[in-house]
Simulated scan of single mutants.
Amino acid sequence: MSASSRLSAHEVTMRFGGLVALDSVSIDVPQRSIVGLVGPNGAGKSTLFGVLSGLLTPTSGTVTFDDADVTRASARTRARLGMARTFQHPELFSTLTVRDHIVLADRIRYSRARLWTDLFTGRGLRRPPADETARVDDLIDTLGLGPIAHRAIGDLPLGSCRLVEVARALAVEPTLMLLDEPSSGLDVAETAELAAVLQQVVADRDVSLLFVEHDVELVLRICDSVHVLDFGVKIAAGTPEEIRNDPAVRAAYLGEDVTSQEKAR
């Protein structure tokens, strides 16, 4: 792990019985960077995300977050250290509004003692202090959620719910965000807007992003570096341009021996 790293995984192996889901995988997320994690279905991306976020304990290897060894630390401990994540399937409260979700996340960061009142009586949500209102308004504006801020999550399409998850994660002011398929369910315009938001977040909020995506073009467009997994093994890592031209990556996605074909030309 370099001095400028926010998160580092070193030689991580994950076995489930006789299945090796990850085989000596290393990955590094520098400070103030956007790092992509891609690979075909079954490559081990979700397993690595589970290890990095604390949902899974690796069979071997280490995970370091802001100079602390968190290999065996729980997801809650990592969250308190400044790690936040979203999920492939949004984990939201269907009866709460968009604004309520961001308010609750803000209070986890700034006023944890109020959460009992907020969740079980609703009274706290109706009496926000001015500084909280300013922070929540800022996030709503940043992610373009103003038109739906007072709508219940259960009434919104999947794409909007994903934007709410990103806003909720940002509300706890993390230093690292793990984003699981953040563009899933978004149309082309929404994906472009999300990409711009993520880049602005890194520039303005001193946060690093690591995200799994099936939209490889999105990853190559906005990431500083990209790691590629295939069958639990890291087959490539580098800049977007290096990944775009890597024969092993092209072979993994195209299902053919690109290297051999190029040699035959």
Rank of each mutant, 00 (worst) to 15 (best):
A79Q: 12
P247Y: 04
D69P: 02
P182Q: 13
K45H: 01
Q261V: 14
L81D: 13
L52D: 02
G238P: 05
A21K: 01
D23I: 11
R151T: 12
R114G: 08
V164P: 04
L198G: 05
D138W: 08
A252T: 08
D67Q: 14
F93N: 09
C161N: 13
L139A: 01
E262S: 11
L115M: 09
G82K: 05
G61Q: 03
G185I: 07
H89F: 02
E190V: 06
R265G: 09
R123D: 10
A9Q: 00
R135I: 01
P129W: 15
G144V: 11
K234S: 10
R80M: 14
L22Y: 03
E165A: 06
L139H: 01
G82Y: 04
V63W: 02
R109M: 12
W116Q: 09
A251H: 06
D155M: 06
V103D: 07
R126H: 13
H10A: 05
D118P: 08
L176I: 08
I148K: 02
D141C: 03
A264I: 03
R80H: 14
H10N: 02
C161R: 15
G154P: 09
D187I: 07
A75H: 08
V226D: 07
E132V: 07
G50P: 02
D155Q: 12
R99V: 10
F120A: 13
R72V: 14
V197E: 06
T13M: 04
T47K: 02
E262N: 06
S160Q: 09
Y110C: 14
F49S: 02
D187E: 12
Q31E: 12
R205A: 07
T259N: 05
V25H: 01
V98C: 12
P157C: 14
E190F: 00
S26L: 09
S111P: 00
L125V: 10
E173N: 03
V38N: 04
A79E: 13
A73I: 13
L176G: 01
A251I: 10
G124I: 10
I235P: 04
L125G: 11
I27T: 02
A9Y: 00
M177T: 05
D138K: 14
L170A: 13
T133N: 12
L104C: 11
L19N: 08
E132K: 02
T64V: 15
A134W: 00
S208I: 00
L163D: 06
K234W: 08
H214R: 13
G42C: 07
H10T: 09
R109F: 07
Y110F: 14
R76Q: 15
I235G: 05
G18E: 11
E193N: 11
P174F: 03
R250I: 15
